[in-house]
Write a protein that binds this DNA or RNA. Structure first.
Length: 231
DNA sequence: GCGACAG
DNA sequence: ATCTTGTCGC
């Protein structure tokens, strides 16, 4: 893509431009499987924010795990976000820092599990889609709550229910652990929903969140704790 | 106009 | 997102 297109996708000057960038990206999104053959190295992406400064400094992390779950590589990036947190526009706040993490990550994963929505988003372009398009890498949206749509799975691990919104299925509510709130999965980029569900369920290991997301969360928190300057 | 609202 | 360790329960 042209350099200025990347600027547009990462640093819109206002909401109108951000919406236009999301429309461009949505037109390029691939929501069916376009993956290398397994086994895959799974990655996790997440960001941590500071209390009392919720709309400024972001601490992002991407980790790579081997098929057995061991951490192969970690990269973090702490910076002042140039876009505030606005529901529906999270990508513009977190993707620039996550892209910096990707550039320094010593071992790249085949698929990234992203802490946020994929296409289960008002304009079909959640954080996972945004990151996948900017990096050109397969991604899965793994959210802990819904932004749009509805869906309630049964109580047993593995139980699922479609997430429906405006008459269409946009994702899947998946119970990964008994007694815990479900996860909401949706296609990010180049990964279909069925494959996404199999991958997430296989990486759960008895916990609510899949291992790559947990590892990324820990790395992002560690970056925040260890960050210099104002907490 | 009112309420909802990933992280 | 963040404030927070131990504690109650399966």
């Amino acid at each position: 893509m042209a350099p200025d297109t990347l600027r547009h996708w990462l640093h819109p000057r206002d909401i109108a431009e951000a919406r236009a960038a999301q429309a461009e990206m949505a037109a390029r999104l691939v929501t069916t499987d376009d993956l290398p053959p397994p086994p895959w190295r799974l990655g996790g992406a997440d960001a941590s924010n500071t209390r009392f400064d919720p709309a400024r400094r972001v601490h992002a992390a991407i980790v790579t795990l081997d098929p057995a779950g061991g951490v192969l590589a970690t990269a973090t990036e702490s910076r002042i976000a140039d876009f505030p947190y606005i529901p529906g526009y999270l990508g513009f706040r977190e993707v620039p820092a996550l892209a910096a993490c990707w550039g320094r990550l010593a071992v790249k994963p085949d698929i990234i599990l992203v802490d946020g929505q994929g296409i289960a988003h008002p304009r079909g372009l959640g954080l996972a889609c945004h990151l996948g398009l900017v990096l050109g890498v397969p991604t899965i949206g793994v959210a802990k709550s819904l932004l749009v749509g509805e869906g309630e799975p049964g109580p047993d691990p593995g139980d699922s229910a479609p997430v429906r919104w405006k008459g269409a299925v946009i994702g899947m509510a998946l119970r990964t652990r008994r007694g815990a709130r479900p996860l909401y999965l949706s296609s990010g980029h180049r990964v279909g929903l069925a494959t996404a569900a199999a991958i997430v369920l296989g990486a759960t290991g008895g916990r609510r969140l899949p291992a790559p997301i947990r590892a990324a969360h820990q790395a992002a928190n560690a970056a925040r704790r260890g960050a210099t300057s104002p907490p």
